[in-house]
Design a protein around this nucleic acid. Structure first.
Lengths: 334, 334
DNA sequence: TATTATTGTGAAATCGGTTTCACGCCTACG
DNA sequence: CGTAGGCGTGAAACCGATTTCACAATAATA
């Protein structure tokens, strides 16, 4: 009752009148096979509807055709469309290159945990990490020779390959815009300052002041954690300590919305009394009122770039980290 | 210069003084192995830091340890945190069961495309599909014996295993609430009516009217497409044709926000003139003002349930589709 | 007590590819 | 003209597990 067994090299070799070794050569693009034999093999492959068995290939060649995408459990990927978009960009590019994406949502902190073991075991050909806080595990894996790409905030001092948004440039552009539109006192609500991304956006903010020969008051710099609530809370503090603040760069859209809520509850209006710029160009920046001005990043492109860097590494090419450009999107809030 | 090669069964067998067959038995939980030998094997495994080679296992056993999660490219997974959350729920449960998640973002329509081939080739042990429009491919794979679970809207007439939100119950509860709070004329803005989910929410709405012995006017039923803009546009139509409409059930939060925008631009207020209820309990329902009343679904639980159904199938257990409960969350808009 | 099951075990075949090696043949160089 | 180097090819080893099969030792049955 069981159907036709799938054809193997043996069947193709027989059908094409060549050895299995030659079948392998043809199917792996070894150029020095007689054209006639090549044709015969390809014809047999086609006729028999042959498909390689991935497990057998993996066992014999050591290449699994799988790339892991590791997402730290700590991150609330929940509620955050960002990572889904990045991941689908990665998946699309990998599939086009005959690689599959293995998604691992897990705690990354443990250098000796199951994930580390899994990756070390070479059950995948490479790994793409998202937004790390700690990099001990990644370093260890990289040292062990596993091709790695980091997406999101890279490490300050590492020679690891990464792809990231131009956080500095985004922070710079947002702050500059606020000053250009006439704001006199521009504050910042940072995201998680532990991450490089958070730091870089703040650096961009500071750079604008530096170029003007000014130094922002300490009280203008407040640290949030990327949540709506933290944006609201920090904005209240800001308004209390600096009633004359007239511009705010919030390091993501969610905090920007929280900040706007705080501004309006204080009786002020956006953008007339206080202008606000967010970061991400998330869907909420368009659905909120006033619509949010923000720093846009091409998120899918970020994922695609990560996948391309991975593929380049697998090919043994020389690879360099990439910073993806951002774009200021002006709507109503600034 | 190359490091220690990874130990294999051969090394363990030697170290424990048993045959490789016995090592396999111990590591696969075959109970009829002498306890002493079992202990010796486990000790050797521990000492040598042994880990199974997945490719070899897959080749020999036919099980790859991989489950595909297939997301239709057509869906804008972009901007929609929903699927990311479902996926991470799936991944977490699968990992706990020593299975890995292979993510495929691709066009699903083609019965004979690369994805179909990939899945048919048994390069994965099973597949979880998201929100299908067409099910030809899925049927074919299921018939071929591949374990399958569908997440999101299931098929009307299929005996395929699925997990879905209680769309009917959600639509019913939302509509009922609007009437209970005193609305006289309750409209609905549906989502993509092609999907079962869209239909079921509408059915829930109709059921409430039916129980009251009434039939909603045709003009109270408008079809959107889950986008913010469509919510806004359909609401404008609604207000034009039914100026006295005082309640709206929008089939997702995004459309609900669009509807609120339309209501306010007409000079009416929410919820006093028109009450609004959305669906999803997305982050936006909390950040918008007025805060949105909505139908909450436990999205991560949806993914977890899907993974569990998959695992049950792999175990050969009898499996039944599941409908996950929803909960009405009342905030300010209704 | 003789015979049949049952249990524990290892040798060897198997899964389906890849890769090394040796061989025969042909061209190029000194 | 003789030898070195290349090319195309097939036989066979190999990747690292699982599983069948045969066999010995023990327990259960008649």
């Amino acid at each position: 009752m069981t159907a036709k067994p799938r054809p193997t090299y043996s069947a193709i070799a027989k059908s094409a009148g060549v050895s299995e070794a030659t079948v392998s050569r043809v199917l792996n693009g070894d150029s020095r096979v007689n054209p006639e034999r090549t044709a015969a093999v390809l014809k047999a492959v086609d006729q028999l509807g042959y498909r390689k068995n991935r497990a057998a290939t993996a066992l014999a060649s050591g290449r699994t055709g799988l790339i892991a995408v590791v997402i730290d459990d700590d991150l609330s990927i929940f509620d955050d469309p960002f990572w889904g978009t990045v991941t689908s960009g990665i998946s699309r590019v990998l599939m086009a290159n005959h690689l599959q994406t293995v998604l691992m949502v897990t705690a990354v902190n443990n250098v000796d945990g199951p994930v580390a073991h899994y990756l070390e075991s070479r059950e995948v050909d490479g790994a793409i990490f998202f937004q790390l806080h700690k990099d001990a595990m990644v370093r260890k894996l990289a040292k062990a020779g596993l091709p790695i790409v980091i997406t999101g905030s890279p490490h300050t001092d590492a020679d690891l390959i990464f792809v990231d948004t131009d956080n500095f440039g985004g922070g710079y552009a947002a702050t500059k815009q606020l000053l250009n539109r006439g704001c006199k006192k521009v504050a910042i609500i940072t995201g998680d300052i532990e991450t490089t991304a958070g730091h870089q956006r703040l650096d961009g903010y500071n750079q604008v002041y530096r170029e003007l020969g000014r130094v922002p008051a300490k009280s203008l710099i407040r640290h949030g954690d990327y949540s709506y609530e933290s944006g609201q809370v920090q904005m209240r503090h800001l308004l209390e300590e600096n009633p004359d603040v007239d511009g705010v760069f919030a390091c993501n859209d969610l905090m920007a919305l929280g900040a706007i809520a705080a501004i309006e509850e204080s009786g002020r209006t956006v953008p007339d009394d206080v202008a606000v710029i967010g970061f991400d160009d998330s869907i909420m920046s368009r659905t909120s009122r006033p619509q949010l001005s923000t720093v846009r990043q091409d998120i899918a492109a970020l994922g695609e770039a990560a996948a391309q860097l991975m593929i380049a590494q697998l090919n043994g090419d020389q690879v360099e980290s990439r910073i993806m450009p951002v774009e200021l999107v002006l709507r109503e809030s600034a």
